[in-house]
């Protein structure tokens, strides 16, 4: 029997890893979205959420290191699968077309590498803008020193049309990535019942759309209400 490392780097092992890391990333973005939506809660909710997250200290660092590792493994294997297909078919077809259902070839499945790379580039700018971005200080109840006013940072950022629409665009790509991704991860993680598989495909596209809309609602709402909409309390 092959060693663990050899098994994980086999074609089956690689898909197991893209599937597992894909699911881990979905869990991460669900938590991230729930956190983001506190923007629409009581006036201090978003900053309190951010404060609580940061007060986790070393636990948060650990989670961040884990997240970077998950992103790295996911991107590396995903892109190498995409890159290696050239080797497996050096001479391309003159004409090629899908035979249609039950094929899962779609805009979504065919653009996994593209949507992935755009998200990867996005993440760099995103972390720089929101994690390391400059903002005013504010106070929150129960904390006797000033904390970063991240709510103000988010709202002023999305008043800028370039930020608001670029963010919206990338969140649409996230939905496209997950349209195939959620189902694909389940097949990689050995879901083999054909009826259940069809149901998971439908559910996957719906969840992908909900996640995408959940994220992109925030910049669009802030931009179109000038940050003064009824859903945001100051």
């Amino acid at each position: 029997m092959p060693s663990l490392l050899k098994a994980l780097s086999s074609q089956v092992g690689r898909k197991l890893l893209t599937g597992l890391t894909g699911v881990a990333l979905i869990v991460f973005i669900v938590v991230h979205l729930v956190g983001n939506l506190t923007l629409f809660g009581p006036p201090d909710a978003f900053n309190i959420y951010a404060y609580k997250l940061h007060s986790l200290g070393p636990l948060l660092w650990l989670a961040e290191i884990g997240l970077v590792a998950v992103f790295a493994i996911h991107s590396y294997i995903g892109l190498s699968i995409w890159w290696n297909r050239r080797k497996a078919r050096p001479q391309k077809y003159h004409v090629y077309s899908s035979k249609g259902a039950p094929s899962r070839q779609s805009l979504s499945s065919k653009s996994m590498a593209f949507t992935g790379v755009v998200m990867l580039i996005f993440i760099v700018f995103h972390v720089r803008a929101f994690k390391y971005g400059e903002t005013t200080m504010t106070s929150i109840p129960g904390v006797d020193y000033p904390v970063k006013d991240l709510k103000a940072l988010v709202i002023t950022s999305f008043l800028d049309p370039v930020m608001a629409f670029a963010y919206t665009f990338v969140m649409m790509l996230l939905g496209v990535h997950l349209g195939h991704g959620i189902w694909s991860a389940m097949i990689s993680l050995t879901l083999s019942n054909p009826q259940r598989s069809a149901a998971v495909y439908t559910a996957g596209t719906i969840i992908a759309a909900l996640l995408s809309v959940g994220f992109l609602f925030i910049p669009l709402y802030i931009y179109f209400t000038g940050g003064q909409g009824a859903l945001i309390q100051y």
Binding site: Q11, R14, K15, I81, W82, N84, R85, K87, A88, R89, S98, K99, G100, A101, P102, S103, R104, Q105, S109, M112, H180, W183, S184, I187, S188
Partner: peptide, 11 residues
Amino acid sequence: GDCSNYGECEA
């Protein structure tokens, strides 16, 4: 090559 779960094979 690797399998990306395109499902074209089944079709």
